[in-house]
Each structure stands twice: as structure tokens, then as C-alpha cells.
Simulated scan of single mutants.
Amino acid sequence: MAKKSLARKSAYAGGGVLVATAAFVGVLVGEAALAVRATHQVKMPVAPSPTGWYGALHAGRPINIALLGDSSAAGYGMTEVEDTPGAVLASGVSEKAHRPVRLHDLSEIGAKSSDLHPQVEKAIAAEADVAVILVGSNDVIRRVRPTVAVSHLAQAVTRLQEAGVKVLVGTVPDLATATPILPPLRQVMRAWSIRIAAGQIFHVVRAGGHTVSLGDVLGPAFKATPAFWFGADLFHPSAAGYHALGEVLVPPTLSVLGLVGDENAILETYNGKQVMPLAAASLRAVIRPGTEIDPAPRPRGRVGRNWARARSFENDQRSPRRGERPAEIPPLAEPHPADR
């Protein structure tokens, strides 16, 4: 009798776990549907393509950049080409390198990592010097297994590397910062984002590519003031968010091209987001009253134990510099002094 009673209790307990699990999954599915509905209720324009020439006044051999990925690469929601991350990236690289830039925007709205392969072939056909890839958000939203998503990205990186194209991947950000996503789905999305981002870093570097962690660099600002950094649908970035994304990609792109050292690229990337040694952050707080100092993780490749984020919302939310409007014809420039 005792054994039967124990078996009956175990069965009830197991049934209770199954019911609770089913209910939890139901909540997640329901919240996901609500988030998608809330996002899609806002009509967002498809941004104009930033494909074209930048820095026509600069001399030297043009730098050929291919931009691959999803709506975050395309600048979904923008109405002016100058506000797209591609335009900001190409303008920034041209300005820093003092060379003209040819940008090929090959991104596709809604693309997952498995959709990269046609974009990769186009980048190779365009003879790109570097391919900048922004992908992974749709893998998170559509619950693609991280191992599957990362595998497709690794294949894309390997194919580009074999064709002589250098690669920079902006890892998937923390999608839990988006307003329409509520707990407990928010925690699930954060865990999924972190798993894919970690896998992207490991496999991209192993395949010979380079990465920049968008979650580390941009995540705190997006989380602190989402109304400023997110667009009308509260999911895709605002103009300020896309400007920040494009600016963050400039230093590591220059590093991948061998135009600046890795250390300088890391410092520029993180200093642009006000992450710096604690002593420097403290000095900034003295110079700029009202600056908030928060502890921050040590940027990869830097030494020292104490790093901090110096944040001033008034300064952070100034109108960032936009990209330039691309030209359709190549520049007629004299050779760069380094090429003579």
C-alpha cells in the first residue's frame, strides 16, 4: 500500500510539474505574441539604401565595405539615408582613414543567421575589403537554437575569410532592453541573447574574424533611457540609436583593416560610450558637474582593475552627428601620399 501511495504521489507531483511547465510556456508564447503585435502595430518605413560612395574629397584607393545582416544593419524605420548605420559607418571610416569609401548595403529586413549566405556571395562578388555583419536578433525572436544560429554565422565568416574578405561581427545585443518585452519573457530573451552573443564571439574569432560586443557597449545606455534610444515601435533603434550603432562600428572596422592598432580601437569604442579607467571617470565628473559614475566591466584587452562608466544623460542625449549622403559615382581623387 505504501508503495502504491508513493507512486500515486509521484504521479501527482509529476503531473503538477507538467501542468506548471505548460502554463509557463503558455505565458511566454502569449507575451511573445503581444510583443510582436505591439511592435507591428506601428508602421515603420523601410530606410533608403546607404549603398554608394563616401568621402569623395579624400585621396587614395577606396575602401570597399560590405554591410550584411538584418534590419539593424538596414536602419529599419529611418526615412533619411544619413540616419542609417551604414551611412554613419562609411562616413566615419572615410573621415578617420582619409580615404574614399564604397559601401555595399546587402542587409535584408527579417534576416536570420541562416539567411546570410546569399549576402556573403554578393559581398565576395563586390570584392569587399571588409564585411561588417549585424545579425542574431531574429534568431532570438524566432527562438532559433543558439548552436544552429552560430553555426550558420561561422560558415559565413569562414566563406568570407577564404575569399580574402576580412570580417567584423557586431554581436547580438540584449533584446530584453526592448520595452514591449515583459517578464518572464524578458529574462528568457536576455538569456537567449547572451547565449547567442557568446557563441558568436567564440566561433567568429575561431574562424579568423573579429567581433565587437554591442551588448557591452550600447546595452547600458539603451536600458537606462529606452525612450531616447528606441524608435516608434519601441523595438528598433531610433535615429540616435542607429547613429550610436554606426559610430561604435567605426574603430573596430579601422582596426580590422589595419589602419589603427587594436588598443586604440578598443579605447575609441569604449571611450565613445564613456567607459574608462576609474581615475579618468572621476576627473570627468569633476569637470562636468552632474556626471553619474557607475562601475563597469574591464574592456577586453585593457589592463587595470578599476573601470567605470561616466554617464551624463544630458550629454548622452545630444543630437549625434549624422552620416553623409552617398554619391552614386566614384570620386576622381589623386593618389593618397601613402600610395605614391
Rank of each mutant, 00 (worst) to 15 (best):
H336S: 12
A90R: 11
R309D: 10
V217S: 01
G304C: 03
R206A: 15
G301K: 06
D115M: 04
A227D: 15
I287P: 00
A338V: 12
A66R: 01
E268N: 06
V36K: 05
L175W: 03
G86E: 11
S114T: 06
A191D: 10
S113N: 12
F313L: 15
A240F: 01
A327Q: 14
Q274I: 02
Q155K: 14
L6I: 04
E268G: 02
V248G: 06
A32W: 04
K4N: 14
A131T: 12
P48F: 03
R61P: 13
L218F: 01
L103K: 07
R206V: 10
L89Y: 07
I124W: 07
L18H: 01
H243G: 04
W229I: 03
G246K: 08
A7H: 08
V42G: 06
S193V: 03
I65Y: 05
A123M: 10
E121T: 11
P183I: 01
G164N: 12
T253I: 13
G272P: 09
S5H: 06
L18F: 09
L185S: 00
P320Q: 01
S319P: 09
F202P: 00
G290C: 08
G231P: 07
P184K: 00
A23H: 04
L245Y: 03
A47L: 09
R102Y: 02
H336T: 11
V167E: 09
G246V: 07
H236K: 14
